[in-house]
Amino acid sequence: MIEVLIALLTALLILVGAGFALVAAVGLTRLPDVYTRMHAASKAGTVGSGLMLLAVALHAGDLSTLARALAGFFFFVLTAPISAHLLAMAAHKMGYPLHEKSVRDELNDYRN
């Protein structure tokens, strides 16, 4: 009984994680410019891979595996905004344009 419950929870985590990855990929394909694509990839993609790591920990049912999976999730959540921010700053500084329907460019005020 408890085995089936753990399998169901693991399957749910796997499927939700894969769904997040698919949403991120669709956003990467459909969104109009670099900055919006970055917004899709760095948030949904990170959550997708992190959920699948948690599914591994739940499936193993081991404390050390859980600790490692949590460390990995924490690491991804920590580094994804940093790399996305660096990329956005670099692209904006080099003058890659926003999509024409964008209404404001607040980073432009801090340009020096």
Binding site: A21, A41, G45, L87
Partner: peptide, 14 residues
Amino acid sequence: RVVALDMLVGIVIG
């Protein structure tokens, strides 16, 4: 391309 490569790493982790 760089954003897509970053996303590719995440998918491979999955």
